[in-house]
Amino acid sequence: MDHMTSSSRTQWISGITLIVILFVLPVFLNEFGRTGEYWIWVSTEMIIMALFAMSLNLILGFGGMVSFGHAAFFGVGAYTVALLTKKADLPLFLALAAAPFTAAITAAIVGWFCVRLLGLYFAILTLAFGQLLYMIVFQWYTFTGGDDGILGIPRPEILGPTNFYWFCLVLFLICFFVMKMIVSSSFGLSIKTIRENMERAKFIGINVRRYQLLNFIIAGAFAGLAGGMLAELNRFAQPDFLHWSKSAEPILASLVGGMYSLAGPAIGSTVLIFLKIFLQQIHPSMVELWAIVLGAAILVVVLFAPSGLVGLYQNIYKKFQS
């Protein structure tokens, strides 16, 4: 890589430009009245779901472990915020701070059982635990509100749509850089070594299970924060947040965006949400076809471009360079 310095400089410039654009976006959108407010809301959702997708990718892309129960931690985070603000009257910021902790504790318990299994069995056990938690939340009517969920989560006056967007963006950026640090730390390298070659990792003295568990907990914590943020954005929590089909969303996002980079899943998630709303805006009945479009897109990616959009871009970029 001889053009390393120049490319890393452009990378920095585009990165900062992007952050600046993201920050001024709502100011610009607010000029468009109600339509603008709608897009601010959508953008906030995109940021939150991007965080959720990135959190999964810590296990999926970097850890090489397929989890079909990740939504459980997302949901636990959402219910933490909902229950603490509604039933315990805690201020939002405290509740939001608690979300990653409850999610991490849940992930620690679930993960302790799950990391003992490999490959497909790991995936199925995460699915089983995810569904188990889903069913518990669904059936515990007196505590979680069951099928009705918890409605009317309070929102502090100062957090209007625009402020809440900025709030989420700041949280997202903090999480992004924390994740970047984790991934490039020695811990991150060990996780990648385990993914590439578990025997070798064991041989060089990495405690595979402990590292995987720790990674699982970290990912769960970030998912919990994302869940808490979504609960606050929607101002309610419901059992569907824990359902296995919700777990599939970040997997699809990672697949579309590319799972071997940090930002890939975030891009994938944003693209997917945008496509869905775009279809709906063209004509409401197009939403009916959304799942078919999504399914077809995934088929194409699985069969022809398993490294996702970022991989595709890198391939094109490489060809362009040479």
Binding site: L60, V66, F68, A123, L252, W290, A291, I298, L299, P306
Partner: peptide, 30 residues
């Protein structure tokens, strides 16, 4: 479809069948 992914990793297989779920279920709706 299935024949093309037998040698691939589990994740791609699962995703292929999940994509089919999305397509088939929505087709039933349509």
């Amino acid at each position: 479809l299935f024949r093309r992914v037998y040698r691939e990793e589990h994740l791609l297989q699962l995703l292929l069948t999940y994509a089919l779920v999305l397509i088939l279920d929505d087709s039933v709706r349509v």
